Simulated scan of single mutants.
Amino acid sequence: MSETTEGVDIRGYEATDADAFWELKRGFELGIGDGTGGDDKLAKYEAKLTDDYRARYLAWVERCAESDPGCVVVASATGDANAEFTDTEGEDVDDPNLVGYAFALPEEMTFIWDAAVLNEIFLAPDYRGTGVADELMTAVLDHARSQDLPLDRMVLDVDRKNERAQAFYDRYGFDHWGELVARDL
């Protein structure tokens, strides 16, 4: 898709990204749980990150990326930052060296909110403030504009205590449109 001035490519998710993508997903989930809710929120988010959850989540990401290419985009460090690693069979493979991702729900799921849905956006801490998050947001907004939507808008949920995320979304013109509430099952 594009290369940022920081030497990071923004591109569509590929199946070979799964392991690195999962590490970012863990960072996303643990970041949500740490400092944005009650004392037990981090423990709840840590507890859900099981091997079964990993397998189910990555299978879902793969299905979404296959059904609507471009709905999951990744930020991949390029050049010298892109290292080599050995897989479980001992083979050398290119490490995608992912530093972030943005995940909009596929077009077939837009009727959930009658709009495009930004499911997740996450950037590794070392890359925050570099413009990479802006590149990810631009890519996912461009993709959402290509979807056949009931309403021409994108929705997302954000913890009101996450001031950094709130400021980021404010820069992109997101405003409050109702409020998401939840309860335990």
Rank of each mutant, 00 (worst) to 15 (best):
M1K: 03
E3T: 15
E3F: 07
T4E: 01
T5G: 15
T5K: 11
I10G: 06
R11E: 02
G12S: 14
E14N: 05
E14F: 01
E14H: 09
T16H: 10
T16E: 13
D17S: 12
D17L: 04
D17T: 12
A18V: 11
A20P: 08
A20V: 06
W22S: 07
E23G: 14
L24E: 04
K25G: 00
E29I: 09
G31Q: 02
G33T: 11
D34K: 15
G35P: 00
G37E: 02
D40N: 12
D40C: 04
L49I: 07
L49T: 06
D51V: 02
A55N: 09
R56D: 03
A59G: 15
V61L: 00
E66A: 15
S67L: 04
C71Y: 01
V72F: 02
V73D: 00
V74D: 05
V74M: 01
V74Y: 05
A75V: 10
N82G: 12
E84P: 05
E84K: 08
G90C: 14
G90S: 08
G90W: 06
E91W: 14
D92Q: 09
V93R: 11
V93E: 07
V93W: 09
V93P: 01
D94T: 09
D95N: 03
L98K: 13
G100Y: 06
Y101L: 04
F103T: 10
F103N: 11
P106N: 03
P106E: 02
M109E: 12
T110E: 03
T110A: 13
I112R: 12
D114C: 04
D114Y: 04
V117T: 14
V117G: 02
L118T: 09
N119P: 02
E120Q: 08
F122S: 12
L123T: 06
P125A: 04
R128M: 02
G129F: 12
D134E: 11
E135F: 14
L136S: 08
V140H: 00
H143M: 06
A144M: 00
R145Y: 13
S146C: 08
Q147Y: 06
P150A: 12
R153P: 08
M154C: 10
V155H: 02
V158T: 13
V158R: 11
D159Y: 13
K161M: 08
N162A: 03
N162T: 07
R164G: 09
A167R: 15
A167E: 10
R171Q: 15
Y172W: 15
G173I: 13
F174H: 14
F174N: 08
G178I: 15
E179M: 15
L180Q: 15
R183T: 03
L185G: 11
